[in-house]
Design a protein around this nucleic acid. Sequence first.
DNA 1: TGTGAGGGCCAC
DNA 2: AAACGTGGCCCTCACA
Length: 724
Amino acid sequence: MSRELELNFSREQVSLNDLTSKLAHNKITNTRLTRNRNKILNAIETVKQLISSGKLVAEGDYKIVMKEDILFLQNYIHKAILNGEYVYDVETTGKDVFNDIIVGICLYTPGEIPLYIPVNHTDIDNVRVDGQLDEEDVKRILRPLLENKDCRYINHNQKFDGEFTQVYWGIRIANFYFDTQLAGKLLNENEENHKLKYLYAKYIKKDPSKWSAFGDLFEDIPFNYVPINIAGVYGGNDGIIPYKLYQFQSSYLRYNHPKDEFRKLAKIMFEIEMPLIPILIDMELRGVEIDEQRAAELNEKYSAELKELELELDRFVKRYEHDILIDETLNRLTHGEGKINYNSPPQLSRLLYKIMKLPVVSRKEPTGTGKKIIEKWLEHSRVDKDTKNFIKMFKQFKTIRKLLNDYINKLPKAVEPKTGAVHTQFNQYGAVTGRFSSSHPIHKINLQNIPSRNKEIRTIFKARDNYVLIGSDFSQIEPRTLASLSGDEEMINAYREGKDLYATMGARVYQMDYWDCMEKHEDGTDNPEGKVRRDTMKSVLLGIMYERSAKAIAEQFNKPLKWAEDLIEDFRRAYPKIELHRMTVINKAETFGYVTTLLGRKRRLPDMKRSDKEDWRYLDAHRQCLNAEIQGTAADIMKLAMIEVGNNEEFKALGAHMLLTVHDELICEAPEEHAKRVGEILTDCMKKVGEELLKLPMKCDVEITKVWYGAEYEFETEDFDDVA
DNA sequence: TGTGAGGGCCAC
DNA sequence: AAACGTGGCCCTCACA
């Protein structure tokens, strides 16, 4: 099956004894630059001194495995397999799974000595150090352990090790059993940080202050330059530390814990977070292809527009040239040239407020130049027509600049040549609520904030040749979650009967007919008044989930404060159970200092225990209570759905792959001929999971396209086949 | 030369 | 002071 990735690493082109070209991607490894060379040498010297002064010590005995130890290693692996659990950690030249390389392996199994196995250590001139085992031998010897389903793999941030192991050695680790980083987040998402050494210092050594001395010594130094004897100290620790942390954490995260709250957390750990790791590895390594031609077209189009806008802006600003030049700040910031940089908030605020004398429209941001302020200026009576025109162009300029710099021009640069795709990392516990986040350490790619309001940007993403994109999104998952958690009959019934929720709410709150609160009349004609009512209800409901103030809702609809207050009050009366639920969640948070999702994932909000209810820290936490419960529950559902999809045999057999998850939407790729079936499997899995948990009907909208947000894919009809 | 803060804005 | 929840990244500018 096409589950394995085809990568062209061309490793043969590089002499095994001189790793220069392999390391050349990373500018710091260009040791011909004295700056880099010195930086590395100094860092190594620092570590040597730390060791000789006793400040940096191994946690215990350890062994460095060299060429002559090959039989010992084989025997060790045998013992690890009998033991059934092990720590395995890869040390690499950096974080880029497609371009960095494995330098050494830390290995540990309980009852045995921790090992450090160097494989690609070099001297400062990138010449491989003698005496190390061949990488091929290490790979061959480790494989039976890593691929053994009965052997529990334990480590911190296993996705990283799993990806390197898969990309370089073609080995898929069989049993991701316990990730101490994920466990750390489940047990306390508010931790100062979730780095291995920090958690170890805090919970095992009980001295969090000391962690930094051990912390990121090699953060910026490719590990290959670290002398093997020093790496051994470090590597020995990296085997034992995760294991001790695991022992500590698993005393809480276990199915037989006396407290129900921990049994639930154990369930989330072992039935959601851990099974997700191999799925995310597949998604991240596969990546998504982009159409560089399309990106170039859009670049041309938007660049031209941007250039034009800048000229127009300059033309208008020209009349203030003198004022700009005599303004001390602007003169300095524009280097005495008076040419405004429209990307610079300091320059703009000076220009707009001091020179052009635009009124302050937000007490909160008296020098702001953002969207909200621009909107206010555009409606302000004291701003003249010409200036409004200028502001409009400025607004447009900013939008275009953002689209160009952040997406259109950036995506092609992020294509990984070895796969021809753009990759991101899905941080599994990226948000405190349990949601994913998306980022990339090298390319800085976040695939969860690709513009959707602008319909063109997403069309840069395309399915691979002969594949289609199949995206399915949960319709209104958060309101559905609220309906389920609160048990509000009216809301639940709206979903059961397949009615429009917001129109149902509108009918109730406004005491009007259902159809008077819809975007269209019953006969299909437009109903603008109905649309306003429906939009208002949507906003109020979202507002309640986000603890939005009446003032903010009033502002959005340009209505008086009283109007919004009454609306919210009406809503609360019409849906008493939602309000009751909100109060219950808040009370729980005040009593216990945390709220939980449906499955028991915790959001700890210790500030809810403050007695001063006016304290901003209390209010801050207060706003998070209901939202964390709903957002977190929705995240749990999406995660379970991904596991359901990822483990679906038919889905795999049809050659389908998950590519992206954007909170309530899951985007997959499948061969064209299986598109329909894969779409069905996808929505079936998602709906099944949602309905099991929320006990109300779920709705998923599927789209099959060649490009993201593109036109619906046209299936070839059978007739067409016959003709062909 | 690198870094962090502030302002801003994209997504759900 | 903030007053809408969860994120990540860009750009400029000041500062080490």
